[in-house]
Computed example of a mutant assay.
Amino acid sequence: MAQRPEGPDFKAQAQAARADLERQFAETRAQFDQARAQFDQVNERITARTGRNLVFATAIGVGVGAVVLASLIFVSALFMVFAAAAFALAVVELGTALRVAGRDIPRTAGVIAALAMIPASFYLTGDWRWYVTLAGMALVVIWRLVEYAWPGRRGGGDALVRDLAASILVQAYIPLLGSFAVLLAAPQNADGRWWLVAMLIVVVAVDTGAYAAGLNFGRHKMAPTISPGKTWEGFAGAFVAAAAAGILLSIFMLHVPWWFGFIYGGVLLLTATAGDLAESLIKRDIGVKDMSGWLPGHGGVLDRLDSILPSAAAAYALYVIFHPIFF
């Protein structure tokens, strides 16, 4: 049986090998620490400039996006659950924020009306979904009028009118615009869910393109009084990203002519940008930075839906116009 050498040469070799491993481990650890420090510095600069934590924002965005896309691709009815949760939370956020500005918004009635729009858009056809929409708006108006009858909830007549107008605005802004996304995913709209998936991807591309280009090249402010972070260079980056995404999606997902990608990407670029600016204007008027802090790195739910809501209506309009032409 072979004996393990125990001489001084073997011990010296073992010690040298151990020292070499320790040196390599120390160098690797130093390189890792240096890379981490550089990443932290970049993340801190991005956070200081944009007000968002890149790590949290990316993780939350990827996680939520993956779940929503999976529901659309595999079980479209499950998308209603996520849409209902998102719209209900957004209604609560906006209603709460408007209360900071002095508007008395019936949030419970608003959530009920928003939730009713989801199955109405998914299952009902014809004019029935519009009846549900009008009924929801009537509900929030009647709810506020009943509250006004109580002495403790009364105010001036002008304040009541503003409350009613703000309550209707919340319903038109969130559940009505958002219902077009649910309508696209409805069973009666052939290929509609793929147009919805394409819309979400283009909106993400717009946001990413604007973020990257604005962060690296942004010099000229687009709307400094509304959204100081937006630049024309960022808008140009968003245009390139939207056009590229639109063309690729037209060819490989929607199976329509490539040139439609310019139309799809261009329209959604405008609606996504307008939606972002509109929400920024609302927040500026109210005096808040984010609608809430429910999504780390993103702010509130409505801060993520601001570009999607008008884009959903635009995507549905494009579907109604072009889908019969192509198919």
Score class of each variant (00 low, 15 high):
183 L>E: 15
196 L>T: 11
223 A>H: 06
103 R>D: 01
144 R>W: 01
205 A>C: 06
227 S>P: 07
104 D>H: 13
119 P>M: 06
99 R>S: 14
157 G>S: 13
123 Y>T: 09
211 Y>C: 05
223 A>Y: 03
152 G>E: 14
195 W>I: 08
204 V>S: 05
110 G>C: 10
114 A>V: 13
167 S>C: 11
180 F>K: 05
204 V>K: 14
175 P>M: 08
129 R>W: 11
206 V>F: 01
167 S>I: 06
216 N>I: 04
228 P>I: 12
196 L>S: 10
224 P>S: 03
205 A>Y: 02
192 G>I: 04
167 S>G: 09
134 L>I: 13
172 A>F: 08
116 A>F: 05
126 G>R: 08
158 D>P: 00
122 F>H: 14
219 R>L: 11
126 G>N: 09
195 W>P: 09
146 V>Y: 04
146 V>H: 08
100 V>N: 10
159 A>F: 00
222 M>Q: 07
192 G>R: 07
136 G>F: 01
145 L>P: 00
99 R>N: 13
171 Q>L: 14
174 I>A: 09
113 A>E: 09
131 Y>Q: 11
124 L>A: 15
171 Q>W: 01
148 Y>S: 12
161 V>M: 11
194 W>D: 10
179 S>Y: 10
129 R>T: 13
221 K>L: 09
104 D>T: 08
195 W>V: 03
99 R>W: 00
199 M>V: 01
183 L>H: 14
120 A>L: 11
130 W>L: 13
161 V>H: 00
191 D>F: 05
182 V>F: 04
155 G>Y: 01
106 P>W: 06
202 V>I: 12
168 I>G: 07
102 G>P: 05
138 A>C: 12
167 S>N: 07
156 G>H: 04
107 R>D: 15
177 L>D: 02
211 Y>G: 05
145 L>H: 03
215 L>K: 03
223 A>L: 07
124 L>Y: 07
126 G>L: 06
221 K>C: 10
160 L>G: 03
131 Y>G: 15
131 Y>L: 12
161 V>E: 01
197 V>L: 11
187 P>W: 00
122 F>D: 08
113 A>Y: 02
141 V>I: 15
165 A>D: 07
219 R>G: 07
177 L>G: 05
100 V>I: 14
202 V>T: 05
159 A>G: 09
191 D>N: 15
